[in-house]
Write a protein that binds this DNA or RNA. Structure first.
Ligand SMILES: NC(=O)c1ccc[n+]([C@@H]2O[C@H](COP(=O)([O-])OP(=O)(O)OC[C@H]3O[C@@H](n4cnc5c(N)ncnc54)[C@H](O)[C@@H]3O)[C@@H](O)[C@H]2O)c1
Ligand SMILES: NC(=O)c1ccc[n+]([C@@H]2O[C@H](COP(=O)([O-])OP(=O)(O)OC[C@H]3O[C@@H](n4cnc5c(N)ncnc54)[C@H](O)[C@@H]3O)[C@@H](O)[C@H]2O)c1
Lengths: 217, 217
DNA sequence: TTTTTAATGTTACATGAATAACAACAAAAA
DNA sequence: TTTTTGTTGTTATTCATGTAACATTAAAAA
């Protein structure tokens, strides 16, 4: 459950550098970044190299410069418009959350099948699901959050495909595979909890296995 | 973003086998499991072997038997009691969610600093944060979900440590490192969205990179 | 009873990702 | 001006994880 991939690391670098910046720092060395994140300094330099981020041989990296470049890579310097399908408990929580803008993300509309949820006013409208094709086309949306009930997940996937959505953050426990047409990130809260409970129950405090897993059977 | 680790795969096996079971199937071969998940059959057999799940040489694996063993390994045959700290938008959504029981998870209490949130009645009480030590001890709780505002995240971590909580599912964007004492699963919704947006913006439909990342700079 | 078959369980290999090592070199010191 | 220093950028190595290959063996077929 450590840092997984290059893009995830870029986000970690960004958050750490923002903290350095708020402390008044201007430049950093690769190990200043590596140590707090528990990774090697050479990996930081390799990542930077791969993304064309360069430093100076004695003075390290300019925090401002790196941050700007990371935001460019991640697209966080623009506003990325995202829609939500299913404005229930999870959908509503996400819709009213105001922490997305710092990463260049804006929830611009919700869509629901229930007429009671439809809301024309307010800064983020909730529209009937039938309007999705038109809205996505007119506003050039490519990413959607799926927060409908499990039973409606499959049909919602088809709807989103038809609307030419390219990426889905899927909160339902129904697992979808990514295809060439559409990338799905299955965000399964149950699974994460089960995983966590397993570790807590099976690993002792010293970090070693409490008992051989095969003894568990 | 494929299947990450052994325990995550066990969950995938479980869900797939449940679907097979509901179709009336009784036995499966390793490739019946591997193919739908896009992994190799030898990995399925290796996983099963590591967890002491065995099949028969001609008849494959008994679905019922494997499911029972997986649930045992994951602890899903018992009830795992979990508490929530911070009963706001996310916390409330999780608290009222009734999909956890199928994985042997039960949210048994919420804790909040705001007196208006305190709720003695109902099946899941919301208690003042001061009561946490006593509650955790009396009910032998080891896992908590953190859904407090970012600003309260650090102090909440300390509170949970003092209460001897062993595992945290952390919904705040504040990243905590796991230690020998406590395992933290940082569940960062923003990061997942940024990651998704990056892929959608940078990979063409054919699955190849749209452009070299270094051209992005 | 013997042979064949088709699956498991296990070992060897490949691949990819992180770390370690180091060469290159700009800045500072002498 | 020359030497030293310390950090970047890059190459070599290690390590982990998944796949491929295969040896084993219970059941079916002959
Ligand atoms: N609430 C949680 O804490 C939680 C936890 C884990 C997983 N989930 C999953 O997240 C998903 C949403 O959960 P929730 O608790 O927000 O559900 P919910 O029932 O509160 O909300 C679902 C919303 O989707 C709408 N909807 C139903 N069918 C639709 C359709 N075909 N098209 C568009 N909208 C439709 C409903 O009108 C409702 O507003 C579920 O799949 C659930 O399993 C939720
Ligand atoms: N809402 C979302 O969609 C969303 C999305 C991504 C991340 N998050 C993160 O999840 C966390 C919770 O978000 P939210 O929208 O549910 O917030 P919220 O403000 O709706 O709820 C927070 C709750 O925590 C309680 N609280 C505050 N300080 C506390 C303390 N010291 N101890 C116990 N309880 C305390 C508050 O009384 C409130 O009930 C935040 O860190 C947020 O950044 C939320």
């Amino acid at each position: 459950m450590t840092i997984q991939n290059r893009i995830a690391r870029l986000l970690s670098y960004k958050h750490l550098l923002n903290r350095f910046k708020s402390l008044g720092l201007v430049r950093v060395f690769s190990d200043n970044i590596a140590d707090p994140l528990g990774i090697s300094a050479s990996l930081v330099r390799k990542d930077f190299g791969l993304f064309g981020i360069s430093g100076s041989q004695k003075g390290g990296y300019s925090i401002e410069d790196v941050l700007h470049k990371i935001n460019n890579i991640l697209g966080s310097n623009e506003v990325n418009r995202v829609i939500i399908i299913g404005v229930g408990r999870i959908g509503e929580a996400l819709m009213s959350y105001n922490g997305f803008h710092k990463d260049g993300i804006k929830i611009v509309a919700g869509f629901d099948i229930d007429v009671k949820k439809i809301k024309k006013t307010g800064d983020v409208p909730v529209k009937p699901i039938e309007d999705i094709n038109e809205y996505v086309k007119e506003n050039n949306i490519s990413v959607a959050i799926m927060a409908v009930p499990d039973i409606a997940a499959q049909q919602t996937l088809e709807i989103l495909k038809r609307a030419n959505i390219r990426g889905i953050l899927n909160f339902t426990p129904v697992k979808f595979k990514s295809t060439d047409d559409i990338t799905v990130n299955n965000f399964n809260i149950e699974n994460e909890l089960v995983n966590l409970i397993y570790f807590v129950n099976n690993f002792k405090k010293n970090g070693k296995e409490a008992k051989r897993v095969s003894n568990n059977i």
